[in-house]
Design a protein around this nucleic acid. Structure first.
Lengths: 153, 153
DNA sequence: CTTTTACCCTATCTACCAGATAGGATTTGA
DNA sequence: TCAAATCCTATCTGGTAGATAGGGTAAAAG
């Protein structure tokens, strides 16, 4: 399972993407809109800023805004930032590789091969999932489900 | 990441599958062969027994052995047993479903859709991965890498 | 029927960390 | 100068992963 931190982080980023024509957005506004404890969110946004994904402005009218192009920010990156490796075994990660102590021969480990495939599939999907892509999906989903009420007029 | 418990559990199960023609196998033997703390392994095997996957015999010559057909034991099942849900968000699990508090409208949530796909792919692979399948992979991998030394004679 | 072997079961410990809060320092705009 | 907002460090709390201790119970050997 994703940590709360990652979940909150992703939700906040999508929110910032959705409203990125409105200038800096205050922590409290995001916190209320997305139901996230404000103080906790503060720490999360700070981390995203230090990672070069967000930027901020202090003082009145200040807040956070997206620094990078929303097509360039992938969910895989956010997850790694907060939760570390995406793979389920240390021996199948690319970015955080570590040997399994209990494993004798990596090259012929059937378990490893399975989890290598799981890892590859997962990373592929999470690399495709940029902030922009998530927004686009939202729009598409609304067009599919919304019309039943809205378009009947 | 998988918990140690799950990793140890899977390794022990594969070991038991590999030697399932040898009758009951003692905890200590598995522990030594797979580099697992014996006392910890004890608890793990007990849990696998209570789950109906293993059976045991006490006394001299006793130990654990596979109760179910190795083609019927899937890694997905072991993972759920020890680590709970496989999905990364509570709102995309089938067996442990729970609403995301921060999520407003599940039907149009782009984040959810992404993680639904991740979950489906992962479960598909882990359902295919039975104990027998893991053993078969081992064999195939050995045939691919081993011959360079063994077959050159 | 006693000894040995090995599983069964509960309790406990330690370290760590996720999730969250407190409170003040600093910057900015009106 | 005041108010709004981020910045930053410290701290708390509960839960839990990983592991160990130790005695209870069943089975087999002789």
């Amino acid at each position: 399972m994703l940590s709360r931190k990652t979940r909150y982080g992703i939700n906040a980023l999508v929110y910032l993407t959705r409203h990125r024509d409105q200038g800096p957005i205050a922590i409290t506004r995001i916190a209320e809109a997305e139901h996230i404890p404000a103080k906790f969110l503060e720490a999360i946004l700070l981390e995203l800023k230090n990672a070069g994904i967000l930027a901020s402005r202090k003082g009145k009218g200040g807040g956070y805004y997206l620094l990078r192009d929303p097509e360039k920010v992938r969910l895989s990156e956010i997850m790694r930032l907060f939760d570390g490796p995406i793979a389920l075994l240390p021996c199948v990660t690319n970015k955080y590789y570590e040997r399994c102590e209990e494993c004798r021969d990596e090259a012929t480990c059937g378990i490893r091969q399975v989890f290598q495939e799981v890892r590859d599939q997962t990373v592929r999907l999470l690399d495709q999932a940029t902030l922009q892509e998530v927004l686009d999906r939202e729009t598409r989903l609304q067009e599919e489900s919304g019309p039943s009420k809205a378009d009947q007029a």
